[in-house]
């Protein structure tokens, strides 16, 4: 079995020193698609934040994309995040600049030099989300679904090993939601990227069969969906 992208053992997820989820065991293999479901307030976002080191690990052990979270200091966190593609409901585009400027902004923030290589990469990720023709558009001219796809394109830039998607369909109608979900699965497959897809909307689980992880009562349950 290949080395896991996410490996939690007896992990505690905390907010302000308070345990939100206790004794979490979770293993995600490379390229695997996982639904993370649970009611609002169940602790999904807290779990994801711990994975991308926005919350400190409250105990137990956790490895994400090869980083041991207990030992990942502040200076290493940017390296960890470059291995992750983070997409939120409200982690949207910067509205004051065009699609390509949004993407360039992310490239520059992660150490890319200006030039043809960067421009090529922008073309590639836009192509991957099917919006190559929107390169010069301003975000406010795009629909909600299109904006979220640009956000995926941005998450793709550094070829992550794991997509972390938190309620990414929160603002979208059911059809668009399903399209986004399909796109995530397709991107995961094409790029060998694992996906951890958090939602409180159980209806989305019908979109396609995949593993389901459930947050409930302060615990995390692995179940087949």
């Amino acid at each position: 079995m290949a080395e896991a992208i996410v490996e939690l053992r007896g992990a505690n997820i905390q907010q302000g020193g308070r345990n939100i989820l206790e004794n979490v065991d979770l293993r995600i293999a490379p390229g695997e698609f996982v639904y993370l479901v649970g009611k609002t307030g169940a602790g999904k976002s807290s779990l994801l934040k711990t994975l991308y080191a926005a919350l400190p690990l409250g105990g137990g052990s956790a490895t994400v994309a090869g980083f041991n979270l207990a030992k990942t200091g502040r200076k290493k966190i940017p390296q960890l995040r470059r291995k992750l593609g983070i997409v939120f409901q409200d982690f949207n585009l910067l509205m004051d600049r065009s699609v390509e400027e949004n993407l360039r902004f992310a490239l520059r923030a992660t150490g890319w030099k200006k030039g043809t290589l960067a421009e090529q990469r922008i073309d590639e990720v836009l192509m991957a989300v099917g919006l190559a023709d929107r390169r010069r558009s301003m975000p406010h001219t795009l629909s909600g679904g299109e904006r979220q796809r640009i956000a995926f394109a941005r998450a793709l830039l550094n070829s992550p090993t794991l997509f972390i998607a938190d309620e990414v369909t929160g603002n979208l109608d059911p059809d668009t939601s399903k399209n986004i979900l399909e796109l995530m699965r397709k991107l995961g497959k094409e790029h060998g990227t694992a996906v951890l897809f958090a939602t409180h909307d159980y209806r989305l689980l019908d979109t396609f069969q995949a593993r389901v992880v459930r947050c409930e009562g302060g615990r995390v349950f692995n179940a087949e969906g």
Binding site: P78, Q79, R81, I86, L94, A109, T110, R154, N158
Partner: peptide, 17 residues
């Protein structure tokens, strides 16, 4: 704050920010 949050989430270092 949105710019900074974006930078942090895509993996920019504090030095860069």
């Amino acid at each position: 704050r949105f710019t900074i949050k974006t930078q942090e989430l895509v993996g920019a270092s504090w030095g860069f920010i």
